[in-house]
Amino acid sequence: MERKKRLKNLSIAAILAFYCAISLVPFYFLVIRSFTPTLKSGEFYFWIPERPEVQMNARLGNLASVNNIDITKLKKDFGLKGYIDPRLTLQQLAERQGIDAGELEEYLRPFIQYNGIFVVLSNGFLKSLWGTIVVAGSSVAIGGFLGIMTGTALAGFRRPWHLFVYNSYLLNMIVPPMMVILPQYFIVTQFLGLQDSYFAIVLLHIKGGALSTMVFTTYIAAIPKSLRESVAMDGGKHYHYFWYILLPLMGTPFAIFASIMMPLFWNDLLLGLLFLSPEKYTLPAFVATLGGAYGRNFEAVFSGVLMSLIPILVVYFIFQKLFIRSAMAGAVKG
């Protein structure tokens, strides 16, 4: 019997390990792809391929077009003035501008060898990352808070119009975002004057959402009415109940809300492209602009995707417990 049980446990572990492996494989290949030069992307690699070398007879313009070498930055870093002819090879550039060729090679090596990562980093990844954190973080924080307030008001549907309000929030779900994108743009930019502002995106993220309303309303409705009454009896006002009793109980629904909405906010491409100027692009918009008309630096695109995944993974690991609790909510009575 004991043996049989051990065998059973082992096979379950094997199945789970297999499942885990196939879930992680895409991430693995994402990492590989982040280090695979775009023009070798026709090949299939199981391991990071050999790093390309800097070729001193490569033309500056070709490197700019294909490897996204930033000529303006190069000029600044080497203190060069005037127009740099993109037809020059690196060798010619070094000779004409009196730069040490070896120095130029050293300077460009990381850009060539780890092109994806460096293109992403040198094109304002950190700025985009901060923008994305601000947008997604504020959206989740404020959206969650507003959702809790909405839920408090609507929970239990004590008045007929509560249900009406609730349903109108749910209608949000069936209206495709593209349908309302123009009116939204008008309202936000023309009436509110929020051009090129993170706040515009946050505003659109936190406007009455179907999910937050649904999650919080349901959850708050399940809280015994007597808690609220008890606060009143204990001499507390409504906001005392909200602050001291309700908010601390909102951990689980907030985790549900955050774990679903955070990735959506994080990956929101459309609003970023629409409302922001390139200097302020959020990560998805930033990654999307790495392409051109005739080609696309896939190494940089994959690196951008990889690097924008990392922060959200960190968030998940930090709040792991909370998210697990949200996943268990309803399954196990707590």
Partner: peptide, 22 residues
């Protein structure tokens, strides 16, 4: 001069922006 580029992926958002006056 604020230089930016539009590609296949960003074209739709760019058009929408123009349609809305941007």
């Amino acid at each position: 001069i604020n230089l930016s580029s539009v590609n296949e992926d960003t074209e739709a958002a760019f058009e929408a922006r123009i349609a809305a006056g941007g």
